[in-house]
């Protein structure tokens, strides 16, 4: 039986009917068309599906859509403002932190959670904050440089 939930995604309110076994990542990608959130493993191992749930970075494949009811979700699509790209997005572009791009959405959101609570993190803190976001392309070097740059 579908359950009606209300949630706020990227500052927009949605009212949707979801099956209890629908995960948040599938709600975002399938029902809401927010395909910027990626699905790399669906088991909470890779971090590609990272979103901010009430400001906390989580694997959206390990959250039921119904659990996100009455909560606030931010996805990669929600980072841009009228002023343009988020400084993290800008830094990822300029520093070459993006290769295949499949981890980028999640990586940027984990970094955002970090900068939101710790605006000038040291490198170990940065490495720790993104340690749940796997990247097979970059060796993390330029990602870390980009996060440092955005924190400047």
């Amino acid at each position: 039986m579908k359950q009606l939930i209300r949630l706020t995604v990227n500052d927009r309110e949605y009212e949707v009917g979801v099956d209890p076994n629908t995960t948040l990542v599938d709600l975002l990608r399938g029902h809401l068309g927010l395909t910027g959130t990626k699905k790399g493993c669906d088991l909470g191992d890779c971090g590609a599906c990272t979103v901010l749930l009430d400001g906390k970075a989580v694997n959206s494949c390990l959250v039921l859509a119904v659990q996100a009811g009455d909560r606030t979700v931010q996805t990669i699509e929600g980072l841009e403002t009228a002023q343009g790209l988020h400084p993290l997005q800008q830094a990822f572009i300029e520093k070459g932190a993006i290769q295949c791009g499949f981890c980028s959405s999640g990586m940027i959101l984990s970094a955002k959670e970090l900068l939101d609570r710790s605006p000038h993190p040291a490198e170990p803190e940065i490495r720790r904050a993104i340690s749940g976001n796997l990247c097979r392309c970059t060796g993390y070097q330029k990602i870390i440089e980009a996060i440092k740059d955005a924190a400047r």
Binding site: R29, I76, Q89, E94, G96, G101, S105
Partner: peptide, 21 residues
């Protein structure tokens, strides 16, 4: 040079379309 990649903005904003999208 070090020009930013052409596909980076699409990938940094979630616009880049992969097969499952």
């Amino acid at each position: 040079s070090r020009l930013p990649r052409l596909d980076a903005p699409a990938k940094a904003t979630g616009r880049a379309v992969f097969i499952d999208d």
